[in-house]
């Protein structure tokens, strides 16, 4: 009995400790972001000289306007646009290609089907960073440096997404495909009328993950865009860093990083259920 009482008390104390820990943790996470926000609202001199200010200054509109319209190397508005094109292109392209390849692998018997599947799987399981050198060569030879195609195409093929859709299609009963055949639907009709609408949730979940993936791409755009007008925002931040003894325009850099994290954070927070589902499935 005594033991049980002790346990209840311990549980109460534990709860408080957990809460305290959580509050400290959350503060720990938010403080840096707050600091970045503060830095984006003050003047250059205030940042360079310690201690850093902890309350927002009065230069919010000025700094953001300067970042959006002029930036350091290229206007941030332009970079945001580039990032959007790239993220959407990668997400939509990946989904389209993966859906079609999974469809081919699951529903059509062709010689070497298994071989192709494993080939796709093996080669594309590797992250971009791994296959970057040969890919760079190919894109350079196609003359796609500094272009949207160059930014998007190499990142579109995806084994994980193909695998995901393959798994999903394999759970669709064969009878459904047969019923569609009896109803007179050809393979593509079946794909668009039946398979695609049935995959809606999977597509949405994957879209969220892939949008973030595309938006946060860093190394690839860094390599193939030399023209500041083609820079994406995430790599643009790094490009703003001073080289050598130049002084950095910290308020603009901070404004840019705040702008860079808003879209992905909004997408994740707005579509949490889909995001977690996509994350869990794509890590399977």
């Amino acid at each position: 009995m005594a033991q049980q009482n002790g346990m209840v008390e311990k549980r109460g104390a534990g709860l408080w400790l957990t809460h305290l820990g959580l509050i400290i943790g959350v503060a720990f996470i938010f403080f840096p972001i707050w600091l970045a926000f503060v830095a984006s609202t003050v003047e250059q001199q205030q940042i360079a000289r310690p201690p850093m200010p902890l309350l927002p200054g009065d230069k919010l509109f000025e700094n953001y306007a300067r970042a959006l319209s002029a930036g350091v190397n290229a206007p941030v508005a332009q970079m945001l646009g580039n990032s959007l094109v790239m993220a959407l292109g990668i997400a939509l392209g990946k989904i389209a290609i993966s859906l079609l390849s999974a469809f081919a692998i699951v529903y059509f018997r062709f010689p070497g089907r298994k071989l192709f599947f494993w080939l796709i799987f093996l080669t594309l399981m590797l992250p971009v960073e791994v296959r970057i050198v040969p890919t760079y060569e190919v894109i350079a030879n196609f003359g796609m440096l500094n272009s949207y195609q160059g930014l998007i195409l190499p990142l579109i093929a995806s084994a994980t997404a193909t695998f995901l859709f393959r798994q999903f299609f394999m759970t669709v009963p064969d009878e459904l495909a047969e019923a569609a055949r009896v109803d007179g639907a050809g393979p593509m009709r079946f794909f668009f009328d039946i398979l695609l609408p049935m995959s809606r949730t999977n597509i949405a979940a994957l879209f969220v993950i892939l949008f973030i993936y595309g938006w946060n791409q860093y190394l690839w755009p860094l390599l193939i865009t030399t023209d500041p007008d083609m820079n994406t925002i995430v790599m643009g931040i790094k490009q703003m860093f001073p080289s050598g003894d130049d002084t950095a325009d910290w308020p603009v850099i901070m404004a840019t990083s705040i702008l860079a994290m808003i879209p992905p954070v909004l997408v994740v927070v707005g579509m949490q259920k889909l995001f977690i589902r996509g994350l869990v499935e794509s890590e399977k």
């Binding site: 009878e175 047969e178 569609a180 055949r181 009896v182 109803d183 039946i194």
Partner: peptide
């Protein structure tokens, strides 16, 4: 092809299209 044979089939697990209404299921063919 099945469709050209002028047949209709009822499947063991019904094979209804899950995302379509009853009307659309019947009307699809």
């Amino acid at each position: 092809e099945p469709m050209e044979r002028d047949i209709a089939m009822v499947f063991q697990n019904y094979a209804l299209y899950p995302h379509m209404s009853v009307f659309d299921n019947m009307a699809y063919g």
